[in-house]
Design a binder for these strands. Structure first.
Lengths: 218, 218
DNA sequence: ATTGATGCGAAACGGTGCGTAGCGTAATCT
DNA sequence: AGATTACGCTACGCACCGTTTCGCATCAAT
C-alpha cells in the first residue's frame, strides 16, 4: 500500500471524458427503464450513447459493474439511508415506506436483475453488499439502537437482526414473490414488527451503562 | 377445459422417450450442482445427456422452463409442504428449518438463478408461483389457521400474511443478501414471529371444541 | 514545439450459446 | 403397408460478448 497521500501528480495522457461517462450511464438508465435489463446490452448502450464500446470497457469490466454504479446512484437519490433522530419509530416507519417505493421503481428492477448474477459473481455480490446493503442496514440499526437507548424500543434484540425482521417481509414480497407492495401490507408489517420490538409501556431509558439487563422473555 | 378424463386414445406416431426425458433432467441436475446455472447451457446438457438439442427443445421451450421442472421436483423431494397436524407451533418450526436447509442446497441455487429471469419472463414467474410459492404458502397458512382455531395462535392476523412474516427474514437473508443461514438465526426469527403470533396464555380456542387449549411457551 | 502517454471512435475479429431447419432413421398406431 | 411423430445429427443465422487494431485527439512534461 504505497499510495502517496493526495498525489498531486496528475496522470499522464489524455484524461477520461466525463461526458462519455455520463452519456453511458444515461443511455443505460433509459434502456433499463424502457426495455429492461435484458435489452440493455453493452452494444445497445454504446449505440444509444454514441460512445464506443471500447470506451465503455475501459471503465467497467462488464455490464453488472456498470449497472451497480447506476443502481447506487439512483438508490442514493430516491432513498438515502436514514439518520438517527428524534422519533425512532417514525423514522423507521418512513424508511420502510421509502424503501418500498424505491424498490418498485428503476432501482428495484436493477437490483432484481443483479441478484441473479451475483450468485455466480462474487465481486458483484461484494459490490452490492458494501455499496448498498451494509451501509443501509447499519444506518437503520443505528436508529434502532438509539431507540433502545432512549427506551422507546426494547433492549436485548440485536439491532441488525431487528432491521432484517422489519425489512425481510418487504423484500421477500417484492423481490422473491414479485408481488406489488400495498400500503396496507407495509402498515401491517410495521405494526407487527413493532409489536415485538417496542418497549413495554413502563420501560425506562438506559442507565449509565451495562445496567440494561432485562429478562428477554416478554 | 375439454379434456377427456384418461384419454384412451393414444397419440399417433412414435411416443416420446421417457429415458431421454430423465437423461436430460439428470444431466441438468449434475451440471447445476457442479458448475452452476451459467454453465448449464442447453448445449452442455445435450452433450452430457447424450440427447440431441432438438429433442430438448421439443419438450421445453427454453432453459428456464427446464430448470423450473427440475426445481419443482427437487423441492417436492427435499421439502414437501407442511400438513395440518397436532402441534401447529412445532410444525411451523420444523417447516422453517426444512425450507432453510433446502434453500441452501441445489433447489436454492436454482431458485435464485430463476428469480432474475422471472423479472423479464411472466410465464416463468407464473410457473414459479403456481408450482412453488402458492401451494407452499397455502399449506403453511392452513397450519396457522388450524392453530388459530384451536387457540394456540392469536386470531385476527391473516394467515397468509403471517406466513410471510415467518419466512420473509429467511428468504431475505438467503436470496437477497445471500448470507448463510445459522441455526441461531432461525431460532431467533421463529421466536420473534411467535412472540407476535402466539396466543396470550389465557386465550381460549374458537368456540365449541375447547379441549385443545394449551398455554404456549416452550 | 516536440515528445510520450493515454483516451477516443470505428471497425473487425473469434468465440459462445441460442433457437431453427433439413435429413435419414426409428418407433408406434390404424 | 401407410401415416405420423420422435430421435440424433449436422448445419445454419443471429446476437452479444470481450478483445484487438488503427488513426486521431488531448493532456503533461520537456
Amino acid at each position: 500500500m504505497t499510495v502517496p497521500p493526495t498525489p498531486p501528480r496528475a496522470a499522464p495522457g489524455r484524461p477520461r471524458s466525463p461526458e462519455a461517462h455520463r452519456a453511458v450511464l444515461n443511455a443505460a438508465s433509459e434502456l433499463l427503464e424502457e426495455r429492461g435489463y435484458a435489452a440493455a446490452t453493452i452494444e445497445e448502450i454504446a449505440a444509444r450513447s454514441g460512445v464506443a464500446k471500447t470506451t465503455i470497457y475501459r471503465r467497467w469490466p462488464n455490464r453488472p459493474a456498470l449497472v451497480v454504479e447506476l443502481l447506487l446512484k439512483v438508490a442514493a437519490r430516491v432513498a438515502p439511508p436514514p439518520r438517527v433522530g428524534e422519533d425512532p419509530l417514525e423514522i423507521l416507519r418512513r424508511e420502510l415506506h421509502l424503501v418500498a417505493k424505491a424498490s418498485q421503481g428503476l432501482a428495484g428492477r436493477m437490483l432484481i436483475a443483479l441478484l441473479g448474477e451475483a450468485e455466480r459473481d462474487p465481486q458483484l455480490r461484494e459490490a452490492l453488499m458494501q455499496g448498498l446493503f451494509t451501509p443501509r442496514r447499519k444506518a437503520t440499526a443505528a436508529v434502532i439502537e438509539h431507540g433502545q437507548r432512549t427506551g422507546v424500543l426494547r433492549r436485548g434484540i440485536p439491532a441488525l437482526f431487528a432491521t432484517d425482521l422489519i425489512f425481510g417481509p418487504l423484500f421477500y414480497r417484492r423481490f422473491i414473490r414479485q408481488e406489488p407492495i400495498t400500503k396496507r401490507f407495509l402498515d401491517q408489517t410495521f405494526d407487527f414488527a413493532m409489536q415485538g420490538l417496542a418497549a413495554a409501556p413502563g420501560a425506562r431509558p438506559a442507565r449509565s451503562k451495562g445496567r440494561d439487563r432485562r429478562p428477554k422473555r416478554s
